[in-house]
């Protein structure tokens, strides 16, 4: 078994850190399995949203509710954060100066917070117009799906902050590396879910 063998899907440490690479196989594969399970959760929330779409109960309909500008800016923010996380992962793999990892992870988190803030602003202005989950089945479906994604991003941000502290405290020990790799998978996964939300919820709603 050589160090350049792929042990799991996604970014592998390989010869950059053979020892952690050896441990990562099981740890990262386990996280992939978790993501599959989480993907089922989102799949069902998407399906539910689709089912509920017609249940507007005489209330607001999708194209009255959504704003393409806002959703597009959120998309840009989140996609950029995935890119910056990519840079963070590369900085970690090749152990460039540690502050590079911290920098890119920090930028990613800032983008994450910006995304959350923007979304909360969206929800608040929707609520001000009376577009709340108690109004209709359709809005319930929306609020079950989109805030669930936001909750995930929030957890990702908290996790990222914990990782920043741990990088300071432990340096790049195997556990830190493995957890950054897991967080990166989580982050990219949420990006993919968001692309689904952008297409299925916002674009479809405004079409």
């Amino acid at each position: 078994m050589s160090a350049d063998e792929l042990k799991h899907a996604g970014l592998n440490l390989q010869e950059a850190d053979p020892l952690t690479h050896e441990k990562a196989g099981e740890a990262i594969f386990g996280f992939w399995v978790f993501l599959m399970s989480d993907a089922v959760v989102f799949a069902l929330l998407f399906a539910t949203y689709g089912v509920m779409l017609r249940g507007t109960a005489g209330g607001p309909v999708p194209h009255e509710v959504y704003e393409i500008k806002s959703a597009f800016i959120e998309t840009l923010i989140l996609l950029s954060s995935s890119f910056t996380f990519g840079l963070a992962s590369l900085a970690m793999k090749y152990e460039h100066k540690r502050h590079q990892l911290e920098l890119w992870l920090g930028v990613t988190l800032l983008l994450g917070f910006a995304f959350i803030g923007w979304e909360i602003h969206d929800f608040v202005s929707m609520a001000a117009k009376g577009e709340v989950p108690s109004r209709s089945g359709y809005l319930s479906g929306f609020y079950a799906l989109v805030p669930m994604h936001m909750l995930h991003v929030t957890i990702g941000c908290v996790w990222g902050m914990v990782m920043l502290v741990q990088i300071r405290k432990f340096g790049l020990d195997p556990m830190v590396k493995i957890n950054v790799m897991r967080l990166s998978l989580f982050w990219h996964f949420l990006d993919i879910i968001w692309i689904g939300i952008f297409s299925v919820v916002y674009l479809q709603g405004l079409a």
């Binding site: 539910t48 509920m52 017609r54 249940g55 108690s134 089945g137 319930s140």
Partner: peptide, 11 residues
């Protein structure tokens, strides 16, 4: 919410 209720578009 009105995901499974009898009224307001629940299913």
């Amino acid at each position: 919410f009105h995901l499974f209720t009898t009224d307001l578009g629940g299913n």
